[in-house]
Design a protein around this nucleic acid. Sequence first.
DNA 1: AAGGTTACCTGCCCGC
DNA 2: TGCGGGCAGGTAACCT
Length: 274
Amino acid sequence: MPELPEVEVVRQGLSPRLIGQYLQDISIHNPSLRYPVPPILNNIMSGHQLMDIHRRGKYLLFEFDHEHLLAWHMGMSGQFHVLPASAPTAKHEHLRLNFSETVTLRYRDPRRFGYVGVLEKSDWQQHPWFINMGPEPLSDDFHHDHLHEICTLKGASIKSLIMNAHIVVGVGNIYASESLFRTGIHPSIPGKSLAKEQYQHLTSHIRQTLQDAIDAGGSSISDFVQVDGKPGYFSHNFQVYGRSGDPCYRCRSTIEQCKLGGRSTFYCPSCQPI
DNA sequence: AAGGTTACCTGCCCGC
DNA sequence: TGCGGGCAGGTAACCT
């Protein structure tokens, strides 16, 4: 499901419903995720107050009044829902954070690529999941000089480079194609073949594409839903993703599709020349 | 050694 | 109607 915009939309949806609430307990219905759900989760976190929900890359960080926090990745198909305790257990519901009779946080994940960990609040950034992460694309840390400096040394395709979380976090398969279309860069061009000025444009288009998607409530392809069950609307704004064979909105050329790094990639051959 | 490929899962959609 | 194949938004361990 989620790239950075979808995770951010989930964070914004969960925050007003959950922050300030006290966690009564955690029930683990099916611990089988990408990494097994830590059995100590309930013992460690129960009784503590949720102070804030942060995002780093595609991870959500649940900060409690406690020396630990929960770091949560939703994988490809993870979903969070806030429901009353009486609501039935959905298919593929893995675990449940029980805050009150009226507020429980359910996590379901059919493909089980998601995972959750208990990290020490004082040095969670040193954890292997975070230690080598690149800058947040919506922050000032994401600068075209930085992108240029790293990518100009690399022979890999520019699409695989911007999807590499060591270089910049949060850009997944959809928004990589969309950002490159907006910039007019062919996805398979090697990083080292691009000019410094192109990195300047790419940086600003990545930023704008992600922000536009957040503003639209994310993209609902497959089954992404916001916490309240509403879909995201950014998929209506896709310029190239999923549009192979259709005319480019800008020049009417036919959108093409190829594979890069095993991932479907979409581009306009005339707006994004080799 | 960098960069491409595969595996991890289930669900869904398509063609036969 | 049913079955098999291919594909899906992420990540990391493998090969080469």
